[in-house]
C-alpha cells in the first residue's frame, strides 16, 4: 500500500487524525510506526511482550496528542521517538525525566511550508547520512539512543549534519516568539 509509494506524507496523516479522528489514516501510521517503535523498545532492552504493549501505548498517545504535533519543528518519526523514549523511561523505571516548559502557544496554526517540508525530510536525510558513517560510529550512536551507554560514554560529536536542523528549529522558534509578542501587544 502506501508503504511502497515514493514517500508517504506522514504529517498529513497526523493532521487527518487530529482534524477528523480519521481511523484509516491512523491505521497507516500504525502499520509504519508500531513495528519501528517495537523494534526500538526491544533494542532498548524490553522483552517482546512489554515492547508490544508499549508500542500500542505509544501509538495510542499519538492519537491522543495529535494536536500537539508541530510539523515545522519535527518529523513524525522524531515526534514518535520522543513519545517512545518517554514510554521506555517509564516502563524500564529509568530516572524520571522532567520535560522543558512547553511553548504554551502550541504549534503555529499555519506553519511555514518550507520548514515543515524540511523537517519531514530530516529523518530520511539523517538516515542516509548515518548509513555513510563508519560502522563503529553508527553503532555508537544507535547504542546511545537504545539507552545502552552511560552518559559519560555518550559522544555528541556524531559527524552528522545536525547543525542545519538546529538552525531551522531556531528560526521556527524565533518566528513563534515574534508572533506571540505581536499577539500580546494587540491584546
Amino acid at each position: 500500500m502506501a508503504e511502497n509509494t515514493e514517500q508517504t506524507d506522514w504529517a498529513a496523516l497526523v493532521f487527518r487524525v487530529r482534524d477528523h479522528q480519521d481511523k484509516a489514516a491512523f491505521a497507516m501510521l500504525f502499520k509504519h510506526f508500531a513495528p519501528r517503535v517495537k523494534g526500538f523498545l526491544m533494542k532498548s532492552g524490553a522483552g517482546e511482550t512489554l515492547a508490544e504493549e508499549c508500542a500500542q501505548d505509544v501509538m495510542a498517545t499519538l492519537w491522543q496528542k495529535a494536536g500537539q504535533f508541530d510539523p515545522a519543528r519535527a518529523s513524525v518519526a522524531t515526534w514518535v521517538f520522543t513519545i517512545a523514549r518517554n514510554r521506555r523511561i517509564d516502563a524500564l523505571r529509568k530516572a524520571r525525566r522532567p520535560e522543558p516548559e512547553e511553548l504554551t502557544w502550541g504549534p503555529e496554526p499555519e506553519p511555514d511550508q518550507g520548514d515543515a517540508l524540511d523537517a519531514q525530510n530530516d529523518t530520511e536525510r539523517l538516515g542516509a547520512a548515518m548509513a555513510r558513517l563508519p560502522e563503529k560510529q553508527r553503532e555508537l550512536i544507535e547504542r546511545a539512543y537504545y539507552g545502552d551507554l552511560s552518559h559519560s560514554e555518550i559522544a555528541a560529536e556524531t559527524g552528522l549534519p545536525l547543525g542545519t536542523i538546529k538552525s531551522r528549529i531556531r528560526l521556527a522558534l524565533e518566528r513563534l516568539r515574534h508572533q506571540m509578542d505581536v499577539k500580546a501587544s494587540q491584546g
Partner: peptide, 25 residues
C-alpha cells in the same frame, strides 16, 4: 531557545534511529 533547538536536533537523530529499526507486531 538555542539549547532547545540543539536538543530538538538530537531528537531528530532519535527519529532516524527509530525509523531504522523493525520488529513485527
Amino acid at each position: 531557545d538555542e539549547c532547545r533547538a540543539r536538543l530538538e536536533s538530537y531528537d531528530a537523530l532519535g527519529g532516524a534511529v527509530v525509523e531504522h529499526g523493525y520488529a513485527a507486531v
